[in-house]
Amino acid sequence: MLSRKLALIVMLGTAGFMSSVAAEIAVIVNPANSAAVTNDELTRLYTGRSSALTAVNLVESSPLRSQFDEKGVGRSSAQLKAHWSKLVFTGKGTPPLELATEAAVIEHVAQNPNAIGYVAAASVTDAVKVVLTLN
């Protein structure tokens, strides 16, 4: 587990992602999706209080993840994990699917009309639509 995490960090590091410590985060949906997403709705989607869209996350080892937890959901990663453990261990919810890379998030959102995800603003491609930018 740890070595995989380490390998991932090293991988991301060499790929130059580590430099994007305080990157702008783009919240993305499928181009076919015309829904407007407010900050409030984003929080609801990523805390399991709304299932209007199906949220996908980056894995915890991704540096962008903790930034998104703070800026997008307004909670620390530990607080969000505590929140989701309440739901998971009482059978009330399942946390968003976790994907390993921003490319996987873009691919997933591009293929699922109901999906919502996030990537660094610089990583956005034409395959997805930006609905919200977090600074």
Partner: peptide, 27 residues
């Protein structure tokens, strides 16, 4: 809360629409 990355990437690759993670184990 963490699912197997391999299983997930396979599932994402093979079933683009609805992903049923059949069984999850948490503790």
């Amino acid at each position: 809360m963490k699912k197997s990355l391999l299983a997930l990437s396979l599932a994402v690759a093979l079933v683009p629409c609805t992903v049923y993670s059949n069984t999850t184990i948490n503790g």
